[in-house]
């Protein structure tokens, strides 16, 4: 009797150990990898209509990609820049309006007319060069987000400015995909648009999504992770897209006040917010602002959380992430 009493729990234990490795396939799971907006996009949805939702999301990615592609003569952005004013789709109007708001909010640190300067540095053609100071100063004259106005469904650019929504389009896209997931009755899904992550609900097992944040100093390591639900997590940093000339590194985040790559003492900024477009715009802006101004900006505006990594590798997180951010590194909480 005693033997069986002992044998049963032991047998159970072994069965448990044996099962631990076989991952159960959730009912209705679909995923896809799409290449658009110059990056690899990974989509995943769980639920009964997962396949349909993923197909609809893929279609939406292609639609918005065409809409926002500045260099493509069929895109709305191209037409706005060419004609100075153009009657656009709801998406373009909405996103442009949002971008202008972030521009106002950040006092022009986020600027959707920065594209000509980016071109000058060669970040679109990948033919990199360091432009002359006079060249930059001249081009800066046409960089001002206030030259873009939206009234109803017409976007107007004035004073020779050129509009580009590239700095915010991915964030908008990830939010749009969340809406599509919801329309299809998906309660659990995630997208990763070239490092911009947004999640709908929780994981199918009810736990929060665990999002790792790359270490800007050592790109195969992580500084830590955040456990989130219904949030976008978006990082900006100059450590992945850059070129080197004469021993100096030039990255792709251009400060609209100088025309040069931002040098604010930060190596990466991660924004966590429900609004993908806002998170996308702010991660760039706060990266340009630097830690002190960003802290003040967070005090004044709120509505998002942030993780800052300085050039020295020090980590600062805003109060809302205390307990959400997991890391074995030292970090300081901004309260």
């Amino acid at each position: 009797m005693r033997i069986t009493a002992l044998a049963i729990p032991l047998a159970c234990l072994m069965l448990l150990a044996g099962c631990a490795n076989t991952a159960g396939d959730a009912a209705g799971e679909s995923s896809a990898v799409v290449f658009a907006m110059d990056t690899e996009m990974q989509l995943k949805a769980y639920g009964k209509n997962a396949d349909e939702a993923i197909n609809a999301a893929k279609a939406e990615i292609n639609r918005l990609d065409k809409l926002f592609r500045r260099g493509d003569s069929d895109s709305e952005i191209y037409k706005i820049n060419k004609n100075g004013s153009y009657k656009v789709s709801e998406d373009t109007a909405k996103l442009t309006r949002c971008a202008c708001e972030i521009g106002d909010m950040t006092n022009g640190v986020f600027d959707i007319t920065i594209a000509p300067i980016m071109d000058m540095w060669g970040f679109y053609t990948k033919e990199f060069r360091v432009p002359a100071k006079t060249e930059i100063d001249f081009a800066l004259g046409r960089v001002d987000h206030r030259n873009v106005t939206v009234s109803d469904d017409t976007v107007t650019v004035s004073n020779g400015s050129e509009l580009d929504l590239g700095g915010i389009a991915k964030g908008y896209l990830s939010s749009r995909i969340m809406e599509i997931y919801t329309e299809y009755g998906i309660s659990s899904g995630i997208v990763s648009l070239g490092g911009n992550v947004q999640a709908l609900g929780t994981k199918p097992d009810g736990s929060n999504w665990n999002i790792a944040i790359m270490d800007p100093i050592d790109s195969v390591a992580y500084i830590g992770s955040v456990r989130i639900k219904d949030k976008a997590v978006i990082t900006s940093g100059g450590y992945q897209r850059f070129f080197e000339r004469d021993g100096k590194r030039y990255h792709h985040i251009i400060d609209p006040s100088t025309g040069y790559p931002a040098d604010s003492g930060l190596s990466s900024v991660t924004i966590i917010s429900e609004d993908g477009a806002l998170a996308d715009g702010l991660s760039t802006s706060l990266y340009i602002m630097g830690l002190d101004k960003s802290t003040k900006f967070w005090y004044d505006n709120g509505g998002f959380d942030a993780i800052f990594v300085t050039d020295e590798g020090e980590i600062y997180i805003t109060e809302g992430l205390d307990g959400v951010f997991e890391s074995r590194k030292n970090y300081e909480v901004i309260k």
Binding site: T39, Q42, S192, W209, M214, T235
Partner: peptide
């Protein structure tokens, strides 16, 4: 990997 996604500065 234990992580559902990775964010990096693109």
């Amino acid at each position: 990997s234990g992580y559902d996604a990775v964010v990096g500065g693109q």
